[in-house]
């Protein structure tokens, strides 16, 4: 299954992603916030609230510590989009992962560039998170390759049977990682959706107005990308089950977000690596036994 970047289908995938991911991501996040509120016995914001928030941020004054910080954040946004585009266009999944890492490094550099203590600690923590999740994602990519014999997402998704059947460990590991990627409790270390964090706003402390808006948009893109990544485990072999499972997984994430306190970074790092080793690496090794 070779993938051609400039074919129609991949082009359509990319364009659809660019146009609709923020909307879909916004609605998913809105529902997320609504469910969270209900779990807390509150009414919660309107479903479109995340989108209002972003639109509002672009109405605000752009306040910076140094002008260069916006450059890093713009790069972050662009490379998150590139990640998604590559992914939905059916490109090599390792490249997608590297692009994602690159994007995050830009975000981190943006935080560093402000020279603020809170952003600094946030950046360090984000790096720890990055380090914690990276192994699992790479292992997931390799696992998918082992099953489908393709590194291209286009190839993976057309697998004749759902990879999740032989990759249950890796799938669970990815779900675990997802909590961290979505910055949900217990892993909302570097920055948090709600304010009461020891780091103020961590990573994003010094961003305001459109800069913050860009990080939020990037976050929505990333959300859609991550959900898409999970979908790879089902592929076109079991699309409906895939969507159902992803919905359940997302609900679970919201639930876990509500049922746990924030853990410390030591635990976050250790647990992610252990989960990766136990679920991911063993699953990979087990592939040989089957």
């Amino acid at each position: 299954m070779t993938f051609e970047f400039f074919t129609n289908s991949s082009f359509i995938g990319a364009v659809l992603f660019i146009l609709f991911a923020p909307l879909i991501g916004g609605i998913v996040m809105g529902i997320d916030r609504k469910i969270t509120a209900r779990m807390q016995g509150r009414v919660g914001p309107p479903v479109l609230q995340p989108i209002y928030d972003i639109l509002k941020l672009f109405e605000k004054e752009n306040m910076v510590v140094y002008e260069s910080q916006n450059f890093w954040i713009l790069s972050y946004l662009i490379f998150i989009v590139v990640t998604g585009v590559l992914f939905f266009a059916g490109s090599d999944i390792l490249l997608v992962i590297f692009a994602l890492t690159l994007a995050h490094v830009f975000l981190i550099l943006g935080a560093y560039s402000t020279g603020s203590p809170y952003a600094h600690v946030g950046a360090e923590r984000e790096l720890i998170q990055l380090m914690a999740v990276e192994p699992m994602i790479i292992i997931a990519a390799v696992g998918l390759y082992q099953v489908t014999n393709s590194f291209d997402t286009a190839g993976i998704i057309q697998s004749t049977f759902a990879p999740v059947i032989v990759l249950p460990g890796i799938f669970l590991g990815m779900v675990y990682i997802l909590t961290m990627k979505l910055r949900k409790s217990p892993f909302d270390l570097s920055t948090s959706h709600h304010a009461h964090q020891e780091l103020v706003k961590g990573l994003t402390t010094e961003f305001s107005g459109s800069t913050l808006g860009m990080t939020e948009i990037a976050h929505l893109y990333e959300l859609v990308f991550l959900l898409g990544f999970l979908f790879l485990f089902f592929g076109t072999a079991a699309p409906l089950i895939g969507i159902a499972v992803i919905l359940i997984v997302y609900f679970l994430e919201v639930f876990v977000d509500n049922a746990t306190s924030r853990v410390k970074w030591q635990f976050a790092l250790k647990s992610c690596w252990i989960v990766t080793a136990v679920l991911g690496v063993l699953n990979l090794l087990a592939l040989y036994l089957i």
Binding site: E61, N62, M63, V64, V65, Y66, E67, N70, T114, G115, S116, P117, Y118, A119, V200, T205, E206
Partner: peptide, 8 residues
């Protein structure tokens, strides 16, 4: 851009 110091 409005330049303002770090949050302290």
């Amino acid at each position: 851009r409005t330049v303002v110091g770090q949050y302290m």
